[in-house]
């Protein structure tokens, strides 16, 4: 694949992540070198406690890296002003929103905050973008509903619409499929895949749905105790990366079906 001429949206160079206290430095993962291109749909997988959240927190500037560098659109993450970063990267987090009294339209409209004036008035252009985001996520019918009236699946779509309205090159989602049933897990990931293709945005998500990610992603980032690998799902399967993902006593990766099976 010749990705060299494609626009690089996110790039890390020898990134090392972890926690720093006054006394010691706890390295969770190091030597992370990933490159995400425009329009790619990327899944981040790994066992519990391996550092997926830490990596996402570091990439989204919630937490500082230990060493190495992160580039968003070829600019160092640390050099971004908060309002500029808000125009380059949008997030969908696992945490609940504080007020569920907001209507769906109001919530999606908050995605336009980095572009609105001091009191937050929406321009014609803002409203067009909000309505387009609602269309793209198939939630126009919910427009006037309040958030507390929505199911988890609907709410997740609303949060994705909000991220779309923020109109950024990169959207990062932290475990967007938790709390959802099997159908909606597939639905949300399929929707994200479609959005990446249609809008040419780069979408990075962390998930435990490895088999779904293998089927849908352009590229996957696999975190294991030893290293962080990023490649296409096919290459990762043939390299046997998924076999190193979990301890081997309970489940094993079946290369033919691209999914994990319980050992009998």
């Amino acid at each position: 694949m010749s990705n060299t001429n494609k626009h690089i949206v996110l790039k890390t160079k020898d990134l090392s992540i972890g926690y720093k206290t006054k006394k010691a430095e706890t390295v969770i993962a190091d030597n992370i070198n990933i490159e995400l291109h425009k329009g790619e749909f990327i899944g981040l997988v790994g066992a519990n406690g391996i550092g997926k959240s830490t990596l996402l927190r570091t990439l989204t500037n919630v937490q500082n890296s230990l060493s190495g560098s992160i580039y968003i659109n070829n600019k160092l993450l640390s050099e971004f002003q908060p309002e500029d970063l808000a125009k380059a990267m949008s997030l969908v987090l696992t945490e609940q929103i504080a007020s569920k009294n907001l209507s769906v339209f109001e919530l999606v409209a908050l995605g336009r905050q980095p572009y609105t004036n001091w009191i937050g008035n929406l321009s014609e252009n803002d409203i067009t973008i909000i309505n387009r985001s609602l269309q793209q996520t198939n939630i126009e019918a919910l427009k006037h509903k309040r958030c507390f009236e929505l199911s988890d699946g609907q709410l997740q779509k609303v949060m994705i619409a909000r991220a779309l309205a923020q109109d950024t090159d990169l959207i990062i989602l932290d475990e967007p499929t938790t709390h959802l049933d099997m159908y909606h897990k597939a639905y949300i990931l399929k929707l994200l895949q479609k959005l990446a293709k249609e809008t040419n945005k780069t979408i990075l998500f962390s998930s435990h749905e490895i088999d779904l990610a293998i089927q849908l992603c352009d590229k996957m980032i696999v975190m294991t105790a030893n290293n962080v690998v990023s490649d296409t799902p096919c290459n990762l399967i043939s390299k046997g990366t998924f076999n190193t993902l979990f301890p081997k006593d309970l489940i094993a990766f079946d290369e033919n079906t691209g999914s994990f099976r319980v050992k009998k």
Partner: peptide, 24 residues
């Protein structure tokens, strides 16, 4: 208070979302 209106609306999403929307 009037100056804070936009920030207050952003805070309805919670602090982490507000931060990701560029709010100081």
């Amino acid at each position: 208070s009037v100056v804070s209106i936009k920030g207050l609306n952003t805070l309805l999403l919670g602090e982490n979302y507000a931060k990701s929307l560029g709010l100081n």
